[in-house]
Write a protein that binds this DNA or RNA. Structure first.
Lengths: 245, 245
DNA sequence: CAGTGGTCTAGACCACTGC
DNA sequence: CAGTGGTCTAGACCACTGC
Protein backbone atom coordinates (compact mmCIF):
# COMPACT_ATOMS: atom_id res chain seq x y z
CA UNK A 1 0.00 0.00 0.00
CA UNK A 2 2.71 2.44 -1.04
CA UNK A 3 1.74 6.12 -1.12
CA UNK A 4 3.41 6.74 -4.50
CA UNK A 5 3.98 10.45 -4.97
CA UNK A 6 4.34 11.33 -8.63
CA UNK A 7 4.93 14.82 -9.98
CA UNK A 8 2.36 15.53 -12.69
CA UNK A 9 3.08 18.52 -14.90
CA UNK A 10 -0.16 19.83 -16.38
CA UNK A 11 1.61 22.34 -18.58
CA UNK A 12 3.64 19.61 -20.29
CA UNK A 13 2.83 18.44 -23.80
CA UNK A 14 3.18 14.86 -22.54
CA UNK A 15 -0.31 13.45 -21.89
CA UNK A 16 -1.15 13.08 -18.21
CA UNK A 17 -1.77 9.32 -18.44
CA UNK A 18 1.60 8.90 -20.07
CA UNK A 19 3.31 10.82 -17.30
CA UNK A 20 1.70 8.40 -14.84
CA UNK A 21 2.89 5.40 -16.87
CA UNK A 22 6.44 6.71 -16.89
CA UNK A 23 6.29 7.57 -13.21
CA UNK A 24 5.13 4.11 -12.14
CA UNK A 25 7.62 2.43 -14.47
CA UNK A 26 10.38 4.50 -12.88
CA UNK A 27 9.13 3.69 -9.37
CA UNK A 28 9.24 -0.02 -10.17
CA UNK A 29 12.66 0.24 -11.77
CA UNK A 30 14.29 2.07 -8.89
CA UNK A 31 12.62 -0.01 -6.20
CA UNK A 32 10.15 2.50 -4.72
CA UNK A 33 7.55 -0.05 -5.77
CA UNK A 34 8.87 -3.53 -5.08
CA UNK A 35 7.74 -6.74 -6.75
CA UNK A 36 4.46 -7.91 -5.28
CA UNK A 37 3.64 -4.65 -3.50
CA UNK A 38 0.08 -3.40 -3.65
CA UNK A 39 -0.95 -0.01 -5.02
CA UNK A 40 -3.70 2.13 -3.56
CA UNK A 41 -7.04 1.70 -5.28
CA UNK A 42 -7.65 3.53 -8.55
CA UNK A 43 -9.92 6.20 -7.12
CA UNK A 44 -7.52 7.16 -4.35
CA UNK A 45 -4.55 7.15 -6.70
CA UNK A 46 -6.41 9.44 -9.10
CA UNK A 47 -7.32 11.77 -6.24
CA UNK A 48 -3.73 11.83 -4.96
CA UNK A 49 -2.52 13.07 -8.32
CA UNK A 50 -5.52 15.29 -9.00
CA UNK A 51 -6.53 13.23 -12.00
CA UNK A 52 -9.86 11.76 -13.02
CA UNK A 53 -10.34 8.06 -12.58
CA UNK A 54 -10.55 7.31 -16.35
CA UNK A 55 -7.17 8.98 -16.88
CA UNK A 56 -5.65 7.01 -14.02
CA UNK A 57 -7.21 3.86 -15.36
CA UNK A 58 -5.89 4.46 -18.86
CA UNK A 59 -2.38 4.62 -17.41
CA UNK A 60 -2.88 1.42 -15.42
CA UNK A 61 -4.37 -0.34 -18.46
CA UNK A 62 -1.14 0.29 -20.27
CA UNK A 63 0.95 -1.01 -17.39
CA UNK A 64 -1.20 -4.13 -17.14
CA UNK A 65 -0.85 -4.70 -20.85
CA UNK A 66 2.89 -4.31 -20.73
CA UNK A 67 3.00 -6.80 -17.89
CA UNK A 68 4.20 -4.62 -15.02
CA UNK A 69 0.95 -4.64 -13.01
CA UNK A 70 -1.68 -7.27 -12.26
CA UNK A 71 -5.23 -6.27 -11.38
CA UNK A 72 -7.85 -8.40 -9.65
CA UNK A 73 -11.41 -7.26 -9.28
CA UNK A 74 -12.48 -6.97 -5.68
CA UNK A 75 -8.89 -7.34 -4.54
CA UNK A 76 -6.56 -4.70 -5.92
CA UNK A 77 -3.56 -3.98 -8.06
CA UNK A 78 -0.07 -5.38 -7.58
CA UNK A 79 3.37 -4.98 -9.09
CA UNK A 80 4.18 -8.23 -10.87
CA UNK A 81 7.88 -8.82 -10.88
CA UNK A 82 11.11 -7.10 -11.70
CA UNK A 83 11.99 -9.76 -14.18
CA UNK A 84 9.05 -9.62 -16.51
CA UNK A 85 9.87 -7.39 -19.45
CA UNK A 86 7.77 -5.17 -21.63
CA UNK A 87 5.66 -6.31 -24.55
CA UNK A 88 7.65 -6.76 -27.71
CA UNK A 89 7.96 -3.70 -29.87
CA UNK A 90 9.13 -3.47 -33.42
CA UNK A 91 12.83 -2.87 -33.19
CA UNK A 92 15.66 -3.38 -35.55
CA UNK A 93 18.61 -5.61 -34.86
CA UNK A 94 20.89 -2.60 -35.28
CA UNK A 95 19.17 -0.71 -32.49
CA UNK A 96 18.90 -3.75 -30.21
CA UNK A 97 22.65 -4.24 -30.52
CA UNK A 98 23.44 -0.59 -29.89
CA UNK A 99 21.26 -0.64 -26.80
CA UNK A 100 23.11 -3.69 -25.54
CA UNK A 101 26.31 -1.69 -25.76
CA UNK A 102 27.79 -3.33 -28.85
CA UNK A 103 29.14 -1.67 -31.96
CA UNK A 104 27.14 -2.95 -34.94
CA UNK A 105 28.47 -2.61 -38.47
CA UNK A 106 26.93 -3.54 -41.81
CA UNK A 107 28.79 -4.83 -44.83
CA UNK A 108 26.67 -4.56 -47.95
CA UNK A 109 27.31 -7.76 -49.91
CA UNK A 110 24.86 -6.86 -52.68
CA UNK A 111 22.53 -3.99 -53.48
CA UNK A 112 20.25 -3.44 -56.44
CA UNK A 113 16.99 -2.10 -57.75
CA UNK A 114 15.03 -4.88 -59.34
CA UNK A 115 11.50 -5.94 -60.30
CA UNK A 116 9.62 -7.95 -57.67
CA UNK A 117 7.78 -11.15 -58.51
CA UNK A 118 6.22 -14.07 -56.65
CA UNK A 119 6.53 -14.10 -52.87
CA UNK A 120 8.30 -10.74 -52.73
CA UNK A 121 5.61 -8.94 -54.73
CA UNK A 122 2.87 -10.66 -52.73
CA UNK A 123 4.45 -9.82 -49.38
CA UNK A 124 4.91 -6.17 -50.31
CA UNK A 125 1.49 -5.99 -51.97
CA UNK A 126 2.90 -4.56 -55.19
CA UNK A 127 1.89 -5.56 -58.71
CA UNK A 128 4.36 -8.13 -60.11
CA UNK A 129 7.18 -6.36 -61.92
CA UNK A 130 7.20 -3.29 -59.65
CA UNK A 131 10.74 -2.15 -58.92
CA UNK A 132 11.95 -2.53 -55.32
CA UNK A 133 15.27 -2.25 -53.53
CA UNK A 134 17.02 -5.50 -52.74
CA UNK A 135 19.88 -5.67 -50.27
CA UNK A 136 22.01 -8.41 -48.80
CA UNK A 137 24.03 -7.45 -45.77
CA UNK A 138 26.36 -9.02 -43.23
CA UNK A 139 25.88 -7.66 -39.73
CA UNK A 140 28.82 -7.75 -37.34
CA UNK A 141 28.94 -6.78 -33.67
CA UNK A 142 32.30 -5.65 -32.35
CA UNK A 143 33.77 -7.22 -35.49
CA UNK A 144 32.17 -10.67 -35.00
CA UNK A 145 29.74 -11.88 -37.71
CA UNK A 146 26.22 -12.27 -36.32
CA UNK A 147 23.62 -12.24 -39.09
CA UNK A 148 23.04 -12.41 -42.83
CA UNK A 149 20.18 -10.12 -43.77
CA UNK A 150 18.33 -10.06 -47.06
CA UNK A 151 15.75 -7.30 -47.48
CA UNK A 152 13.31 -5.98 -50.05
CA UNK A 153 12.01 -2.42 -49.61
CA UNK A 154 9.33 -0.56 -51.55
CA UNK A 155 10.77 2.20 -53.68
CA UNK A 156 7.96 4.62 -52.90
CA UNK A 157 8.74 4.61 -49.17
CA UNK A 158 12.35 5.74 -49.08
CA UNK A 159 15.38 6.45 -51.25
CA UNK A 160 18.14 3.92 -50.56
CA UNK A 161 21.74 3.56 -51.59
CA UNK A 162 24.59 1.23 -50.82
CA UNK A 163 26.48 4.00 -49.01
CA UNK A 164 23.47 4.74 -46.78
CA UNK A 165 22.99 1.08 -45.87
CA UNK A 166 26.65 0.70 -44.96
CA UNK A 167 26.56 3.51 -42.46
CA UNK A 168 23.16 3.15 -40.78
CA UNK A 169 20.52 0.61 -39.79
CA UNK A 170 17.59 0.13 -42.17
CA UNK A 171 14.97 1.15 -39.61
CA UNK A 172 16.88 4.31 -38.77
CA UNK A 173 16.92 5.21 -42.48
CA UNK A 174 13.20 4.52 -42.78
CA UNK A 175 12.37 6.62 -39.75
CA UNK A 176 14.46 9.51 -41.04
CA UNK A 177 12.45 9.31 -44.29
CA UNK A 178 9.20 9.74 -42.33
CA UNK A 179 8.14 6.09 -42.45
CA UNK A 180 6.36 5.09 -39.22
CA UNK A 181 6.26 1.33 -38.83
CA UNK A 182 3.23 0.13 -36.94
CA UNK A 183 2.92 -3.59 -37.46
CA UNK A 184 5.35 -6.39 -38.08
CA UNK A 185 4.46 -9.96 -38.83
CA UNK A 186 7.29 -12.34 -37.97
CA UNK A 187 7.96 -16.01 -38.32
CA UNK A 188 10.86 -17.48 -36.38
CA UNK A 189 12.32 -20.90 -37.05
CA UNK A 190 15.57 -22.75 -37.49
CA UNK A 191 17.68 -24.55 -40.06
CA UNK A 192 21.20 -25.73 -40.82
CA UNK A 193 23.76 -23.37 -42.39
CA UNK A 194 25.03 -24.28 -45.85
CA UNK A 195 28.73 -23.88 -46.69
CA UNK A 196 28.47 -20.33 -48.06
CA UNK A 197 26.44 -19.12 -45.09
CA UNK A 198 28.73 -20.85 -42.59
CA UNK A 199 31.75 -19.25 -44.26
CA UNK A 200 30.29 -15.75 -44.08
CA UNK A 201 29.14 -16.15 -40.48
CA UNK A 202 32.43 -17.75 -39.45
CA UNK A 203 30.87 -20.94 -38.07
CA UNK A 204 31.33 -24.63 -38.91
CA UNK A 205 29.28 -25.95 -41.84
CA UNK A 206 26.20 -27.68 -40.46
CA UNK A 207 25.81 -25.30 -37.52
CA UNK A 208 22.34 -24.21 -36.48
CA UNK A 209 20.83 -20.90 -37.63
CA UNK A 210 17.83 -18.99 -36.27
CA UNK A 211 15.71 -17.85 -39.21
CA UNK A 212 13.39 -14.86 -39.26
CA UNK A 213 10.94 -13.81 -41.94
CA UNK A 214 9.32 -10.42 -41.41
CA UNK A 215 6.91 -8.10 -43.16
CA UNK A 216 6.68 -4.59 -41.68
CA UNK A 217 3.67 -2.33 -42.32
CA UNK A 218 3.59 1.43 -41.83
CA UNK A 219 0.90 3.72 -40.46
CA UNK A 220 -0.57 4.18 -43.92
CA UNK A 221 -1.12 0.46 -44.27
CA UNK A 222 1.68 -0.06 -46.80
CA UNK A 223 3.80 -3.21 -46.56
CA UNK A 224 7.12 -1.40 -46.66
CA UNK A 225 9.72 -4.04 -45.92
CA UNK A 226 10.26 -7.75 -46.32
CA UNK A 227 13.20 -9.25 -44.47
CA UNK A 228 14.70 -12.74 -44.53
CA UNK A 229 17.37 -12.96 -41.88
CA UNK A 230 19.72 -15.67 -40.66
CA UNK A 231 21.31 -15.49 -37.21
CA UNK A 232 24.08 -17.52 -35.65
CA UNK A 233 22.17 -19.68 -33.17
CA UNK A 234 25.03 -19.46 -30.67
CA UNK A 235 24.75 -15.67 -30.55
CA UNK A 236 21.11 -14.70 -30.99
CA UNK A 237 17.66 -15.63 -29.73
CA UNK A 238 14.31 -13.83 -29.67
CA UNK A 239 12.81 -12.80 -26.36
CA UNK A 240 9.21 -11.77 -25.94
CA UNK A 241 6.58 -11.31 -23.29
CA UNK A 242 3.06 -12.41 -24.13
CA UNK A 243 0.09 -10.98 -22.24
CA UNK A 244 -3.32 -12.62 -22.05
CA UNK A 245 -6.55 -10.64 -22.08
CA UNK B 1 -17.15 4.90 -45.53
CA UNK B 2 -19.13 1.75 -44.81
CA UNK B 3 -22.28 2.17 -42.76
CA UNK B 4 -21.54 -0.85 -40.54
CA UNK B 5 -24.72 -1.96 -38.79
CA UNK B 6 -23.95 -3.99 -35.71
CA UNK B 7 -26.51 -5.49 -33.40
CA UNK B 8 -25.74 -4.43 -29.83
CA UNK B 9 -27.52 -6.36 -27.11
CA UNK B 10 -27.75 -4.25 -23.97
CA UNK B 11 -29.21 -7.08 -21.92
CA UNK B 12 -26.24 -9.33 -22.61
CA UNK B 13 -23.58 -10.01 -20.00
CA UNK B 14 -20.96 -9.38 -22.70
CA UNK B 15 -19.63 -5.81 -22.30
CA UNK B 16 -20.82 -3.42 -25.00
CA UNK B 17 -17.29 -2.55 -26.17
CA UNK B 18 -16.54 -6.22 -26.53
CA UNK B 19 -19.64 -6.77 -28.64
CA UNK B 20 -18.37 -4.00 -30.92
CA UNK B 21 -14.92 -5.60 -31.13
CA UNK B 22 -16.43 -8.93 -32.09
CA UNK B 23 -18.77 -7.31 -34.58
CA UNK B 24 -16.04 -5.42 -36.40
CA UNK B 25 -13.78 -8.47 -36.38
CA UNK B 26 -16.58 -10.47 -37.94
CA UNK B 27 -17.28 -7.75 -40.53
CA UNK B 28 -13.62 -7.78 -41.54
CA UNK B 29 -13.49 -11.56 -41.66
CA UNK B 30 -16.55 -11.99 -43.86
CA UNK B 31 -15.68 -9.08 -46.13
CA UNK B 32 -18.32 -6.51 -45.15
CA UNK B 33 -15.32 -4.36 -44.30
CA UNK B 34 -12.65 -4.84 -46.91
CA UNK B 35 -8.94 -4.21 -46.48
CA UNK B 36 -8.19 -0.52 -46.74
CA UNK B 37 -11.81 0.62 -46.38
CA UNK B 38 -12.52 3.60 -44.15
CA UNK B 39 -14.83 3.56 -41.16
CA UNK B 40 -17.12 6.42 -40.19
CA UNK B 41 -15.68 8.69 -37.56
CA UNK B 42 -15.83 7.64 -33.93
CA UNK B 43 -18.61 9.98 -32.91
CA UNK B 44 -20.93 8.93 -35.74
CA UNK B 45 -20.18 5.25 -35.17
CA UNK B 46 -20.99 5.64 -31.48
CA UNK B 47 -24.25 7.42 -32.34
CA UNK B 48 -25.20 4.75 -34.90
CA UNK B 49 -24.97 2.06 -32.22
CA UNK B 50 -26.37 4.23 -29.41
CA UNK B 51 -23.12 4.05 -27.50
CA UNK B 52 -21.05 6.75 -25.87
CA UNK B 53 -17.87 7.78 -27.62
CA UNK B 54 -15.54 6.42 -24.87
CA UNK B 55 -17.14 2.99 -25.20
CA UNK B 56 -16.77 3.08 -28.98
CA UNK B 57 -13.19 4.25 -28.60
CA UNK B 58 -12.35 1.49 -26.16
CA UNK B 59 -13.46 -1.04 -28.75
CA UNK B 60 -11.43 0.63 -31.48
CA UNK B 61 -8.38 0.84 -29.21
CA UNK B 62 -8.48 -2.89 -28.89
CA UNK B 63 -8.77 -3.39 -32.64
CA UNK B 64 -5.87 -1.01 -33.27
CA UNK B 65 -3.78 -2.86 -30.74
CA UNK B 66 -4.55 -6.21 -32.29
CA UNK B 67 -3.56 -4.83 -35.66
CA UNK B 68 -6.89 -4.88 -37.50
CA UNK B 69 -7.42 -1.10 -37.68
CA UNK B 70 -5.11 1.86 -38.27
CA UNK B 71 -6.05 5.33 -36.99
CA UNK B 72 -4.62 8.65 -38.13
CA UNK B 73 -5.45 11.88 -36.39
CA UNK B 74 -7.17 14.35 -38.64
CA UNK B 75 -7.69 11.67 -41.26
CA UNK B 76 -9.70 8.72 -40.04
CA UNK B 77 -9.71 5.02 -39.35
CA UNK B 78 -9.00 2.26 -41.85
CA UNK B 79 -9.05 -1.52 -41.98
CA UNK B 80 -5.46 -2.67 -42.33
CA UNK B 81 -5.28 -5.93 -44.18
CA UNK B 82 -6.81 -9.36 -44.23
CA UNK B 83 -3.46 -10.96 -43.80
CA UNK B 84 -2.28 -9.38 -40.63
CA UNK B 85 -3.08 -11.58 -37.68
CA UNK B 86 -3.91 -10.90 -34.08
CA UNK B 87 -1.40 -10.18 -31.35
CA UNK B 88 0.14 -13.29 -29.92
CA UNK B 89 -1.71 -14.81 -27.00
CA UNK B 90 -0.49 -17.39 -24.58
CA UNK B 91 -1.47 -20.69 -26.09
CA UNK B 92 -0.26 -24.19 -25.65
CA UNK B 93 1.17 -26.27 -28.44
CA UNK B 94 -1.57 -28.83 -27.80
CA UNK B 95 -4.32 -26.31 -28.47
CA UNK B 96 -2.55 -24.76 -31.47
CA UNK B 97 -2.32 -28.19 -33.04
CA UNK B 98 -5.93 -29.05 -32.33
CA UNK B 99 -7.04 -25.77 -33.85
CA UNK B 100 -5.01 -26.56 -36.96
CA UNK B 101 -7.01 -29.75 -37.28
CA UNK B 102 -4.33 -32.21 -36.19
CA UNK B 103 -4.63 -34.94 -33.59
CA UNK B 104 -2.01 -34.28 -30.91
CA UNK B 105 -0.92 -37.00 -28.53
CA UNK B 106 1.49 -36.95 -25.62
CA UNK B 107 3.78 -39.75 -24.57
CA UNK B 108 5.09 -39.21 -21.06
CA UNK B 109 8.74 -40.27 -21.12
CA UNK B 110 9.35 -39.33 -17.50
CA UNK B 111 7.33 -37.93 -14.63
CA UNK B 112 8.35 -37.18 -11.05
CA UNK B 113 8.00 -34.97 -8.04
CA UNK B 114 11.38 -33.58 -7.10
CA UNK B 115 13.08 -30.71 -5.28
CA UNK B 116 13.93 -27.67 -7.43
CA UNK B 117 17.34 -26.04 -7.33
CA UNK B 118 19.30 -23.54 -9.39
CA UNK B 119 17.69 -22.20 -12.54
CA UNK B 120 14.44 -24.08 -11.98
CA UNK B 121 13.93 -22.72 -8.45
CA UNK B 122 14.89 -19.22 -9.62
CA UNK B 123 12.55 -19.30 -12.61
CA UNK B 124 9.61 -20.50 -10.51
CA UNK B 125 10.51 -18.15 -7.62
CA UNK B 126 10.46 -20.97 -5.07
CA UNK B 127 12.96 -21.45 -2.26
CA UNK B 128 15.62 -23.98 -3.29
CA UNK B 129 14.56 -27.47 -2.30
CA UNK B 130 10.81 -26.87 -2.82
CA UNK B 131 9.15 -29.86 -4.44
CA UNK B 132 7.83 -29.37 -7.98
CA UNK B 133 6.49 -31.60 -10.72
CA UNK B 134 8.91 -32.49 -13.49
CA UNK B 135 7.73 -33.98 -16.76
CA UNK B 136 9.35 -34.96 -20.01
CA UNK B 137 6.99 -35.58 -22.89
CA UNK B 138 7.09 -36.42 -26.57
CA UNK B 139 4.43 -34.66 -28.58
CA UNK B 140 3.20 -36.25 -31.80
CA UNK B 141 0.71 -34.93 -34.35
CA UNK B 142 -1.17 -37.49 -36.35
CA UNK B 143 1.44 -39.97 -35.16
CA UNK B 144 4.49 -37.95 -36.33
CA UNK B 145 6.96 -36.78 -33.65
CA UNK B 146 7.05 -33.00 -33.41
CA UNK B 147 8.46 -31.86 -30.08
CA UNK B 148 10.28 -32.89 -26.92
CA UNK B 149 8.90 -30.98 -23.97
CA UNK B 150 10.44 -30.73 -20.53
CA UNK B 151 8.39 -28.90 -17.91
CA UNK B 152 8.54 -27.95 -14.25
CA UNK B 153 5.28 -26.98 -12.51
CA UNK B 154 4.69 -25.61 -9.03
CA UNK B 155 2.99 -28.11 -6.77
CA UNK B 156 0.76 -25.52 -5.15
CA UNK B 157 -0.92 -24.64 -8.45
CA UNK B 158 -2.31 -27.98 -9.58
CA UNK B 159 -2.31 -31.69 -8.86
CA UNK B 160 -0.59 -33.60 -11.68
CA UNK B 161 -0.17 -37.25 -12.56
CA UNK B 162 1.32 -39.22 -15.39
CA UNK B 163 -2.13 -40.43 -16.47
CA UNK B 164 -3.47 -36.88 -16.63
CA UNK B 165 -0.53 -35.65 -18.72
CA UNK B 166 -0.92 -38.51 -21.18
CA UNK B 167 -4.50 -37.66 -21.94
CA UNK B 168 -4.60 -33.87 -21.95
CA UNK B 169 -2.49 -30.79 -22.69
CA UNK B 170 -0.75 -29.13 -19.75
CA UNK B 171 -2.53 -25.80 -20.22
CA UNK B 172 -5.90 -27.49 -20.36
CA UNK B 173 -5.13 -29.20 -17.05
CA UNK B 174 -4.02 -25.91 -15.49
CA UNK B 175 -7.14 -24.10 -16.65
CA UNK B 176 -9.37 -26.84 -15.28
CA UNK B 177 -7.60 -26.39 -11.92
CA UNK B 178 -8.52 -22.69 -11.90
CA UNK B 179 -5.10 -21.40 -12.91
CA UNK B 180 -5.42 -18.31 -15.15
CA UNK B 181 -2.20 -17.65 -17.03
CA UNK B 182 -1.67 -13.99 -17.73
CA UNK B 183 1.94 -13.53 -18.78
CA UNK B 184 4.50 -15.67 -20.53
CA UNK B 185 8.10 -14.80 -21.07
CA UNK B 186 9.60 -16.71 -23.97
CA UNK B 187 13.00 -17.05 -25.56
CA UNK B 188 13.20 -18.66 -28.97
CA UNK B 189 16.43 -19.87 -30.54
CA UNK B 190 17.98 -22.78 -32.37
CA UNK B 191 20.50 -25.57 -31.98
CA UNK B 192 21.57 -28.92 -33.39
CA UNK B 193 19.89 -32.16 -32.24
CA UNK B 194 22.06 -34.65 -30.40
CA UNK B 195 21.73 -38.37 -31.16
CA UNK B 196 19.14 -39.11 -28.46
CA UNK B 197 16.96 -36.18 -29.44
CA UNK B 198 17.24 -36.99 -33.14
CA UNK B 199 16.24 -40.56 -32.43
CA UNK B 200 13.15 -39.58 -30.46
CA UNK B 201 12.07 -36.96 -33.00
CA UNK B 202 12.77 -39.31 -35.92
CA UNK B 203 15.18 -36.97 -37.69
CA UNK B 204 18.80 -37.31 -38.80
CA UNK B 205 21.42 -36.57 -36.15
CA UNK B 206 22.71 -33.04 -36.67
CA UNK B 207 19.33 -31.70 -37.82
CA UNK B 208 18.23 -28.25 -36.70
CA UNK B 209 15.88 -27.75 -33.72
CA UNK B 210 13.86 -24.71 -32.71
CA UNK B 211 14.31 -24.17 -28.97
CA UNK B 212 11.86 -22.45 -26.65
CA UNK B 213 12.30 -21.51 -23.02
CA UNK B 214 9.18 -20.21 -21.30
CA UNK B 215 8.07 -19.03 -17.88
CA UNK B 216 4.32 -18.58 -17.46
CA UNK B 217 2.84 -16.41 -14.72
CA UNK B 218 -0.75 -16.53 -13.45
CA UNK B 219 -3.15 -13.79 -12.39
CA UNK B 220 -1.92 -14.01 -8.80
CA UNK B 221 1.64 -13.25 -9.89
CA UNK B 222 2.93 -16.78 -9.31
CA UNK B 223 5.45 -18.23 -11.76
CA UNK B 224 3.56 -21.44 -12.32
CA UNK B 225 5.36 -23.18 -15.16
CA UNK B 226 8.82 -23.44 -16.64
CA UNK B 227 9.09 -25.11 -20.04
CA UNK B 228 12.09 -26.11 -22.12
CA UNK B 229 10.90 -27.35 -25.47
CA UNK B 230 12.59 -28.65 -28.61
CA UNK B 231 10.79 -28.62 -31.95
CA UNK B 232 11.69 -30.22 -35.27
CA UNK B 233 12.75 -27.21 -37.34
CA UNK B 234 11.20 -28.74 -40.47
CA UNK B 235 7.78 -28.86 -38.81
CA UNK B 236 7.44 -25.90 -36.49
CA UNK B 237 8.04 -22.15 -36.39
CA UNK B 238 6.72 -19.33 -34.24
CA UNK B 239 4.51 -16.66 -35.78
CA UNK B 240 3.74 -13.37 -34.15
CA UNK B 241 2.44 -9.92 -34.93
CA UNK B 242 4.13 -7.00 -33.20
CA UNK B 243 2.31 -3.69 -32.82
CA UNK B 244 4.01 -0.35 -32.21
CA UNK B 245 2.50 2.27 -29.89
C1' DC C 1 -20.56 -6.33 4.53
C1' DA C 2 -16.92 -2.86 2.82
C1' DG C 3 -13.58 -2.43 -0.67
C1' DT C 4 -12.01 -3.26 -5.16
C1' DG C 5 -11.74 -3.15 -10.17
C1' DG C 6 -15.06 -3.32 -14.62
C1' DT C 7 -18.12 -0.81 -17.44
C1' DC C 8 -20.55 3.11 -19.18
C1' DT C 9 -22.28 7.94 -19.98
C1' DA C 10 -22.35 12.82 -21.80
C1' DG C 11 -20.09 15.94 -22.33
C1' DA C 12 -15.48 19.32 -23.21
C1' DC C 13 -11.34 21.20 -25.49
C1' DC C 14 -7.43 20.37 -28.26
C1' DA C 15 -3.94 19.07 -32.20
C1' DC C 16 -3.47 17.57 -36.44
C1' DT C 17 -4.68 16.74 -41.50
C1' DG C 18 -6.01 17.93 -46.02
C1' DC C 19 -8.38 20.95 -48.86
C1' DC D 1 -11.44 25.93 -42.89
C1' DA D 2 -14.15 21.54 -41.63
C1' DG D 3 -13.32 17.01 -40.15
C1' DT D 4 -10.80 13.75 -37.63
C1' DG D 5 -8.74 11.34 -33.76
C1' DG D 6 -6.32 12.41 -28.86
C1' DT D 7 -7.03 13.64 -24.22
C1' DC D 8 -9.56 14.60 -20.09
C1' DT D 9 -13.36 15.29 -16.61
C1' DA D 10 -16.94 14.03 -13.03
C1' DG D 11 -19.75 11.41 -12.24
C1' DA D 12 -22.83 6.53 -12.09
C1' DC D 13 -23.91 1.63 -11.29
C1' DC D 14 -22.34 -2.97 -11.17
C1' DA D 15 -19.80 -7.65 -10.13
C1' DC D 16 -16.66 -9.72 -7.62
C1' DT D 17 -13.60 -10.73 -3.47
C1' DG D 18 -12.55 -11.65 1.18
C1' DC D 19 -13.78 -11.09 5.81
Amino acid sequence: MTALKLAIDRSSAVPLYHQVVRGIEAAIRNGDLSAGSRLDNEIDLAAQMNLSRPTMRKAMDELVRSGLLVRRRGVGTQVVSNEVRRSPEITSLFEDLQEAGGIPTSEVLAFSREPAYGTVAESLHTPPGTYVYHSFRLRRVDGRPLALMENWIREDAVELSEALLSSRGLYEILRAAGVNLRLAHQRIGARIADDAEADRLDIAPGSALVTMLRVAIDDKGRSVELGRHLYRADSHSFEMTLVNR
